[in-house]
Design a protein around this nucleic acid. Structure first.
Lengths: 122, 122
DNA sequence: ATAATATGTGAATAGTTGCTCATGTGTTCA
DNA sequence: TGAACACATGAGCAACTATTCACATATTAT
């Protein structure tokens, strides 16, 4: 019975550095925040959405244009634009039948660039 | 027959701004790069991995400690650490039976912080 | 050598997700 | 009014993924 009872029973090995674990636990952001953070990055974790973001960083475009540019169906693009809008990464304006999308966040480019920096270094 | 033949046939609507589409297409990075970028961000798109990265930013830790900290099995953590290592985000060193993990990239914190900035603004 | 411990790993599974297909909504134009 | 067009959206499916489970490997201690 050497198991530390203060820690959950789901780990099947001992806690080696309890002091460090407790110290780090105090500094961790709250669970909710970390989940939101993961959800935010999940949006960048798809090549279609990455391409859309990259394209919109170059110019405002309508759904048809994006579909043609990326060689995909309008429906697929529309679904992804919905995801991007939920994440507050793009905004849209309607002009007659046509809906124009553009970036809605100034650090989208910064985030993409930092990702690029990483994969280029490796 | 007004459809532009220069563009793929998978889009079920017309191209409205052909000049802009062509212009943006020229500026887009190559496909390969965009896929790598998506794969890179995919790693951040999971709350377990986000929590591991956050923890390792505070202190170097062994697998057991991380499992205890996050209240998960050692096996689950080990699998995720493998993913993080593939992405060159963590490195490890062995000391006897114990394997210590730490961050292997100085912009991990930057990327996390920018994600945080975004979700806080919204 | 044997037991105990820390970690790695393959297979299986449950949950998630991106796309397609069909259809609906809203707008323009004849 | 109705046809044509741009876009949105729900259901369904195939592909992917995170976790669990069982077990393998490696190191230490007795």
């Amino acid at each position: 019975m050497s198991r530390k009872q203060t820690l959950a029973d789901r780990c099947d090995c001992e806690v080696i550095h309890e002091d460090i674990v407790n110290q780090v636990r105090e500094k961790m952001p709250q669970e909710e925040t970390l989940y939101e953070l993961a959800d935010f990055f999940k949006v960048f974790g798809d090549s279609t959405r990455i391409r859309i973001l990259w394209a919109l960083d170059e110019a405002e475009m309508c759904v048809c244009d994006i579909a043609a540019l990326l060689n995909m169906t309008q429906s697929a693009i529309s679904h992804q634009l919905w995801v991007l809008k939920q994440a507050k990464l793009v905004r849209n304006r309607k002009e007659g039948k046509v809906v124009y999308y553009s970036l809605d966040d100034e650090h989208v480019r910064l985030i993409l660039d930092q990702g690029l920096t990483h994969i280029k270094e490796v």
